[in-house]
Design a protein around this nucleic acid. Sequence first.
RNA 1: CGGGGCGUGGCUCAGCCUGGUAGAGCGCCUGGUUCGGGUCCAGGAGGCCGGAGGUUCGAAUCCUCUCGCCCCGACCA
Length: 480
Amino acid sequence: MAESPITPRGADFAQWYQDVVLQGDMAEPAEIVKGCMVIKPNGYAVWEVLQRELDGRFKATGHQNAYFPLLIPQSFLQKEAEHVEGFSPELAVVTVAGGKELEEPYVIRPTSETIIGHFFAKWIQSWRDLPMLMNQWANVIRWELRTRMFLRTTEFLWQEGHTAHSTHEEAMEEVLRMLDVYADVAENIMAMPVIRGQKTRAEKFAGAVKTYSIEAMMQNGLALQAGTSHDLGQNFGKAFDVKFQNKEGQLDYVWQTSWGVSTRLIGGLIMTHSDDKGLVLPPKLAPLKSVLVPIYRKEEERAAVLEAAHRIAKETGSKVDEREGHSPGAKFFHWERRGVPVVLELGPRDLASGKIVVKRRDTGAKEPVSQDGIAATLDATLEAIQTNLFASARERLKANTVWAASIGEVEEILKDASAEKGGGKFVMAHIKDDPECDARIKQFKATIRNMPLVDECDGPGKCIVTGETVPQRALIAKAY
RNA sequence: CGGGGCGUGGCUCAGCCUGGUAGAGCGCCUGGUUCGGGUCCAGGAGGCCGGAGGUUCGAAUCCUCUCGCCCCGACCA
């Protein structure tokens, strides 16, 4: 019996995560390019499902895809003061091209607000041109000091939505609408519960007026910012002179938004559902929902089993694992590590009884069911897995969310709840949106993740730092 | 970017201290055998020891530099 190649979560969570990514054949470090990774077909297939789900929702809310250049004139970044300050430490800059020093260097986009601002200025003249609703699927580069596959790499894939509106109200509706789209995909497709909320001033996007995020809880209790949506106000409109003539004939700057999710979602997915046996994929996100492993010993059995296997596979859309020279046991482990939601086992015994064994990845439960109506049985099982994964993740989130009444209590909870031991907590406490309060929390190696939009707490209370009355509790946690 | 650890067949690692021309297990290939949770046996392929430079008659081993990965911290989707 071979040793499990996956480090148990309890032993070393970071190592477990990496083992799952590797054993699930999702990605591997691109050791020849610093901080980058190769997303392998198994991982990319998941990204494609996410893209499909997100893109459909973007289109349904009126957005169109476009594509802007990877290279951005350096001066563009500097037009918005906060923006350049926020991003300059992590920029990669192209200074030489075609064998010549460039007159003006290009930065490789860390995000595209600036270059899109430039083009919006060209394209928008009248209120009739608004709203302008665009999205681009792209890669970006941010020179990160510390990288982890999917969670933070130097280059990553994402989508960035960019919109321009004639009023602030309309822009705000857009910001929250897209935040809801993200929450919908996270919860209903990825089965990953999230907390929607507003970032503090200290944590908002460089150049935004307000930033909203969805925050998810990983199995070790750490928070993961899984998506952001920004109210850019007129900041970029002013920086790039994006003006329009309103119905009254007056010139005004547009109100812009931007919003994005990245391949980081895949990291969140892994850290939400996977276990010590490897990857666990929710059915709605699994590129391969079921695999059928045929079992036989004699040649006569082989033919009969395979014949039935193909018939059932056709009915259910399963893949038949026909590889020779691998025992069924080896195949079970193989698909288990890759997170396939259901494995169907079909052998001579099943042929004789007219049954087939259905094995769930989430619970490990194994049950012989009738071959008649197997497609419906499988669908019901997949649905049950999807529901179960979301329910257990939500339960974990609830169980590890606690209230704190004082700064000392926050410190105690965060100290006890060492994430290395898997006991990280979400702490809800009244705290003011003031950079000094953020700084205080940072002393505990945690951050104010966001101020939840849906306040499931007890309403107003006194800030644990300043003592002033604030409208609601905020979410405090250690985070990736 | 600071601190720590690590780079030796595809993978996990031994060998390094005390230089003498590279090993094991797993995987892979071939044949047979097996097949309801990682079958077993036999044969076989595969590595200029991360890279560069130096010391030496001789370097995986000693020295210098460099690149990368992992972990911890400060910064971040």
